[in-house]
Write a protein that binds this DNA or RNA. Sequence first.
DNA 1: AGAGGTTACGGGCAGCGTAAGGATC
DNA 2: GATCCTTACGCTGCCCGTAACCTCT
Lengths: 298, 298
Amino acid sequence: MIDIRSLEVFYWVVELRSFSRAAHRLNTSQPAVSQRVGALEQRLGYELLMRPTRTCRLTDRGRILFDYAEQFVRLQAKMESEVISPGNVRRTVRLGVSETIVHTWLPAFVEGVHSEMPNLTIDIMVDITPRMYVSLEAKELDMAFMLGPVSEPGYQSVPLNSYPLSFVAKRGLIAEADRNDIRTIARHPIITYPRETYPLTALREIVSKIIMRQPRIFANASLSTMVKMAKDGIGIALIPAEVVQEDVADGALEVLDIDLGLRPLTFVATYPHELDDHLCEILARKARKIAEDYKMRL
Amino acid sequence: MIDIRSLEVFYWVVELRSFSRAAHRLNTSQPAVSQRVGALEQRLGYELLMRPTRTCRLTDRGRILFDYAEQFVRLQAKMESEVISPGNVRRTVRLGVSETIVHTWLPAFVEGVHSEMPNLTIDIMVDITPRMYVSLEAKELDMAFMLGPVSEPGYQSVPLNSYPLSFVAKRGLIAEADRNDIRTIARHPIITYPRETYPLTALREIVSKIIMRQPRIFANASLSTMVKMAKDGIGIALIPAEVVQEDVADGALEVLDIDLGLRPLTFVATYPHELDDHLCEILARKARKIAEDYKMRL
DNA sequence: AGAGGTTACGGGCAGCGTAAGGATC
DNA sequence: GATCCTTACGCTGCCCGTAACCTCT
């Protein structure tokens, strides 16, 4: 009589305060959402939303239904996670990923998940950590592999792996003798992660204390661009050595043996702990395992 | 993904231990049930029922799904009862009714319910109380208006009304002077409810003590037949006067003023207290009110 | 004028019922 | 052979997506 799909649609319309966002979230068209909510109201014989306003506020009776809708959506998520064998999970998970991970073990992760859960689609959005926070909050992402630690309430966080930050330079750019001398290195621009990220802020603070001035920094949101810039000798990259292992192996880049005491980059899998918990948990554990394997293989 | 309808179907298949009974219960065809369960198994990738046996036993994983299915069905029933305005309830309730009630206030009840809940269909099965018990147990009925009191565990029971039992005879069959004399009356066969019912057993016990022999009793499961027999002078009916008020009014029958101290017939609305509770509760209350109104109008 | 929601319409597909086909007692 | 479930098949009706329309800022 009352379809669970309709309740799910209604739930997300309210949760996201928008028909179109709900449509997007549910991988359907906005008219489809409109129709379902309309049909629901018609079947019940009263309005659920105070529509004229843009905010999709609930009516009193809508509130009652919403509470039930939430219970249904939760129960459904719980059931599906427990009852459906992994190979039969048919869903789309929207995953935010830091570029660093894209360049290391993400391919292995995607392949691994695909082989175990062939009907699971992973939509990958590459972005920087602060923006992924926002996307998680807006429920545009189901999970993110990003820089940790995360201690937001309402989020579950599984540590993945850590990458020590290394200075990486074009081969021959820095003379053998100067490779542990920060002053020499700091004559070159430092290419690293964009503002609002740990590497940049920490670097600026530490280096400026040593060389008594602000280092030149090329902040860049694209890891591959950073690598390219380093390979072109434009500057020296402060990035995990792991992402350039091939370039180091074939001699294009070299890792400088200098240690400023920077914290390694720690990545975590983060997801809101509710509703789809279980699948995210499985994926997070899988990611952790893949990341460990990756480290071992190096 | 997993439809609540499929869960409902699966739930009833297990609960009733039969595909065909589930189909009947859900007002659908048996192949439809078969398909839904089949589709469910296919989607999940494993079997839910150990089919070859006639008993529809659950597999281990089927058991897990069944627990969820039950939660869904309960939640759905709860939600629909709270959220759907009475006028929009679209369901079929299978109601067992004692014939006595059919002849008194059932028409008013049906009409009253129909006017308030035009989309509610009531399937009425007229039967005697002991058989309605069985039907309730087998879940062939959702609710029954029958003789009380009921104290079975697992059943909810709402008192409706009481009918004092009266001796009713064809006009002139018993002389004015003898109308309070049980010995005279007992020369005629007593027409009343069938065996296993209170009126018959109580009558037999009380009368036999007075007249020192077994009275002749015509036990009959059909109230209208009883009335007809009384009107034909075949015997004297022991029934509620209410059911023959018209015949008394137009002079075909008359009520004898004799009191053997028989308990009045007490009717109750009985339904298993689970799942569809709420609707049954509403209907039971409605029935009670109609029954009271009926009594007032007399 | 543009974003966001509704209405209109055509097509695809899931799910139903009828009917025929096994399997098991 | 009777009962119960499964398979086959045609059909209906729902629901979706595209597109045009409305409405409020």
